[in-house]
Design a protein around this nucleic acid. Structure first.
Lengths: 145, 145
DNA sequence: GGATTCTAATTAGATTTCTAATAAATTATA
DNA sequence: TATAATTTATTAGAAATCTAATTAGAATCC
């Protein structure tokens, strides 16, 4: 039987290694920790409200406020007043030209790091791992969707 | 073939879910994010220098300084001047009585969360997953030991 | 129309985290 | 012995993150 507490350790170890490796590379693009996630989400589809961006990025709306403010200052994104039915005082977020270019570069970083991470994994193992990682995540989620 | 970028997403998703679930429970023990790791390491063996604690917890020494300061203020740990051969101005860190009790409670939280996370996994799958998670972590580590 | 309510966003205050620079203490060297 | 070098810890400053409380619009209700 597997030792208990191993998961906790390994998850902290692996996710912190991952974060560190990414941070190093994102830094060359002048991106700090919270920003690449936002760019990636917006590259797939623009115009999200801040609250939905927050959900997509797995952070609180308050956190998103501050990340967004920094990104707006750096002209990676711009905001437009959104008139949502039922919702009020909402902002929709869009990429600037600079933001789009940076997002594409960041995307390449993600691809590179993924290659590095999966070195020595057969594609069967990769699929197995991903499926289990997602199952595990779902087991831990309560309310966010 | 597996979609690229899936790993990045899934790892962020799962590790943030894990962190959130743990945070919620650690909170009842009046522990904030950085503290449980330190308690867990010290429960296994006391007297680590701050720099070694940092390594064990996968954070920078400067980070450990501030976490340790908060924990000392809350009387979870105490520090003693250490005279290391070759090393200088080092502090060894120990649990207080309160710290030990809290560490044991935190340990139980970790065990509970692990059970929750692994729900629906056979013990074979658990082992497979852990082994792959560690391999992946090692692929991403550069210099830390 | 004005008060209430609802939702989105922000602010306040704390902790964790980083990097870079600095301080502190011990050992080595001249 | 005084200076230099080495190692550990801390401070400074920024960003990300949380929770709790507040502000800002928009819609509803009387």
């Amino acid at each position: 039987m597997t030792d208990t507490k191993e998961l906790h350790k390994a998850l902290i170890f692996t996710s912190s290694s991952h974060r560190r490796t990414c941070r190093e590379r994102f830094r060359r693009l002048d991106l700090t920790d919270g920003q690449p996630k936002v760019l990636a989400v917006l590259l797939e589809r623009e115009g999200y409200l801040q609250k939905d961006l927050a959900k997509k990025c797995h952070v609180e709306p308050a956190t998103m406020s501050s990340v967004i403010a920094n990104m707006e200052r750096k002209e990676l994104i711009r905001r437009e007043t959104a008139h949502v039915s039922g919702g009020k005082r909402a902002f929709a977020v869009y990429l600037t030209e600079k933001g789009r270019k940076t997002a594409e570069a960041a995307n390449n970083v993600v691809i590179d790091v993924e290659k590095l991470a999966f070195e020595g994994f057969s594609s069967e193992e990769q699929e197995q791992f991903l499926s289990m990682l997602e199952r595990l995540g779902k087991n831990l989620v309560q309310k966010q969707n």
